[in-house]
């Protein structure tokens, strides 16, 4: 694999990550925000696997595995929270949930 290709993977990973980030910051739907976070997880996993291939080590795989586990757990908790919020407040918008207001 030519050296340029590795950097291509990295650039793709960065771009995906930033797209996810922008989604979290810009969108108001909690569901979409959660999905954007999943995008970021995916980008991170791609980065790890790229470097795992570059150095031929299994540690990157382990990390990627961990990312999938954490992402799944996070999705479960996040969705549960969303269900809870919708159930109690009928809010379609994270901006309506302002219990953190100081």
């Amino acid at each position: 694999m030519p050296g340029m290709a590795v950097q291509g993977y990295l650039v793709l990973s960065v771009v995906l990550f930033v797209i996810g980030l922008a989604g979290v910051l810009v969108r108001r739907s909690p569901l979409v925000m959660l999905m954007s976070i999943e995008l970021m997880w995916g980008a991170a996993g791609l980065l790890f696997l790229t470097f795992a291939r570059l150095w031929a080590g299994m540690e990157g795989h382990i990390f990627s595995f961990l990312i999938i586990v954490v992402g799944a757990a996070e999705a479960a908790i996040g969705l549960a929270l969303i269900v809870l919020i919708f159930r109690t407040r009928d809010a379609a918008d994270v901006d309506d949930v302002r219990a953190l207001r100081g």
Partner: peptide, 28 residues
């Protein structure tokens, strides 16, 4: 502001990624 912040991060990360050439991938 969200787009701007994302853009700044994008530029920063791209610079980090592209700044130095990486070695060829090892043989697996």
């Amino acid at each position: 502001m969200g787009v701007v912040a994302a853009g700044v991060l994008l530029v920063a990360l791209l610079m980090a990624v592209l700044r130095q050439p990486l070695p060829a991938p090892a043989q697996v």
